[in-house]
Design a protein around this nucleic acid. Structure first.
Length: 481
RNA sequence: GGUCACGUCGUCUAGUGGUUAGGACUCCAGGUUUUCAUCCUGGCAAUCGCGGGUUCGAAUCCCGCCGUGAUCACCA
């Protein structure tokens, strides 16, 4: 049987990164078995529906490279892929249940149901509606909630992550199948959809584990074969033990994209949060993941969301992708340069990127780390006088050193990194200074930045005119004092 | 309260009867002739939730306990 998996989000806003993983794993399972990955939009909750949320979700999936085989924009043989467009299918299935006496229309007003619930809560008992099942039920029609007529019993099932599990009769209840607004509940719709779409692996968060009793009963009532169940552990918030949610500041994938996190790193990070292949590998490409992912190696305990590791992974990916194809990676940096870079061409920016990429944690770092390549830095004498290595020198000595440097550098005819390296080394012996002092001084004089790439690289990219002009500007500033 | 699940360094984890309990992130120290970062080397860090048992031997098997979380919607 062909493997079919699905990601079925609700368009109630952006999907935060904690939920993205439940799209990644089904994708990997489908791809590694040359199966089908379906995107289904579960938009049956009209109250929480957010306009544009579907686009946000699609963007996120596309950014991460999780393209779906069937679903919105792609079509497929099992559509429609929006639940609100599948009403007729649900009604048809509902009628099967009514016909064999496993569902009934419930005329009980919701206020009364609420009262029942309150009673149970007060008595400190789990609320089971079947204890209040009405005896006189009308014929079902849209407008009246349709409930499952549960026949509670023991169930045993296998979960690919959690192993063999069993559920007692107390877990089954007369759940609502179709709401008064005529739309199905998740509990009912997902089973019908998965069955009609041929889904072989039901993958979702572990919060659905307690509802399995009801689902198992539904599969049975429909005479359906059970799909494989894969419940995923929660991703925990950075602090506390609760699952990560928007309230903990769980950001959207788009937030990370704008911060300059690479999708490769995000995919790697999320996939390995609660999963590993048993080796000591840390860096996984999408292809690696597709080849090596194994459902049974998913952790059972929740994994804490640790942004530190994401950042590290991102740095690793920046370096790796640069080695693989520097130009291609550079092309992805367009939105991350400081404003002052706008008037410079790609050639110049690519040179900068080439000497600074290996100290970036995110592409966003470009914004703060490259300013001095595009505009002359403000000459700030304090930066020099407060410098640890330069403190010991008098202003006079510093000035002399600067002049000596300018003279030396002026004689570098072909302004290349190699030649500069040579000149700089000669200058070191001639001036009889420590690298910390001499190079530190030139570095600051030319950038006034807390850190920068290797000095000879920086000077080479900056160019002869700019480099010398900046050093002269510092000399002038000293003379003025 | 009922039901279910989970429990190895601060964090992510390896580990399925015999290991000095391994790796990664973070942190610290040293090195790579400037800074920052990369990279390399080394270090700190888990009495394997606790208590019993089985066994010559247990993180690994059994029992009990504790802790944590999820769930008990006309939300998904």
């Amino acid at each position: 049987m062909k493997t079919v998996t699905r990601f079925a989000p609700s368009p109630t806003g952006y999907i935060h990164i904690g939920n993205v993983r439940s799209a990644i794993y089904p994708y990997l399972v489908a791809k590694q078995e040359e199966g089908t990955f379906i995107l289904r939009i579960e938009d049956t909750d009209q109250a929480r529906y957010v306009e544009g949320a579907t686009d946000l979700i699609k963007d996120t999936l596309l950014w991460l490279g999780l393209d779906w085989d069937e679903g919105p924009d792609r079509g497929g043989n099992h559509g429609p892929y929006y639940q609100t467009q599948r009403k007729e299918i649900y009604y048809e299935w509902a009628k099967k249940l009514i016909a064999n006496g496993r569902a009934y229309a419930d005329p009980t007003p919701s206020e009364t149901v609420a009262k029942y619930r309150e009673e149970s809560n007060k008595a400190k008992k789990a609320f089971l509606y079947r204890n209040y099942r009405p005896t006189d039920t009308p014929e079902w029609k849209v407008g009246i909630p349709l409930r499952l007529k549960s026949e509670p019993k023991e169930y045993t099932y296998h979960d690919e992550v959690y192993g063999d599990l069993h559920l007692g009769p107390e877990t089954q209840d007369d759940i609502i199948l179709i709401k008064a607004d005529g739309l199905p509940t998740y509990n009912f719709a997902h089973i019908v959809d998965d069955a009609t779409m041929g889904v072989t692996h039901v993958m979702r968060g572990q919060e659905y584990l307690p509802s399995m009793g009801n689902y198992l009963e539904l599969y049975e009532a429909f005479g359906l074969e059970r799909p494989k169940f894969v419940h995923l552990p929660h991703i925990l918030a950075p602090t506390g033990n609760k699952k990560l949610g928007k309230r903990d500041g769980a950001k959207s994938a788009n937030d990370y994209r704008m911060d300059g996190i690479l999708p490769e790193a995000m995919l790697n990070f999320l996939a390995c949060l609660g999963w590993n292949d048993g080796t000591e590998q840390e860096l996984y490409s999408k292809q690696d993941l597709i080849e090596k992912f194994k459902l049974e190696r998913i952790q059972r305990a929740g994994a804490r969301y640790d942004e530190q590791k994401l950042l590290w992974l991102n740095g690793q990916w920046i370096r790796r992708l640069f080695q693989e194809d520097a130009k291609a990676l550079y092309a992805r940096t367009q939105d991350f340069w400081p404003e002052s870079a706008a008037k410079y061409d790609d050639n110049y920016k690519f040179k900068i990127f080439s000497i600074i990429y290996d100290r970036l944690k995110t592409l966003g770092d470009l914004k703060t780390m490259t300013n001095y390549f595009f505009e002359d830095p403000k000459v700030d004498m304090d930066v020099i006088t407060n410098n640890k290595a330069l403190k010991k020198l008098s202003e006079h000595e510093i000035c002399d050193l600067l002049r000596q440097s300018v003279t030396k550098l002026q004689n570098v005819n072909e302004w290349t990194a190699e030649n500069l390296q040579t000149a700089l080394n000669e200058l070191l012996t001639e001036s009889n200074q420590k690298p910390m002092v001499l190079f530190g001084l030139i570095r600051i004089g030319v950038s006034f930045a807390p850190f920068s790439p290797a000095l000879h690289d920086t000077l080479a990219v900056l160019g002869k005119n700019t480099s010398l002009a900046r050093l002269n500007a510092v000399i002038t500033a000293f003379a003025r004092d």
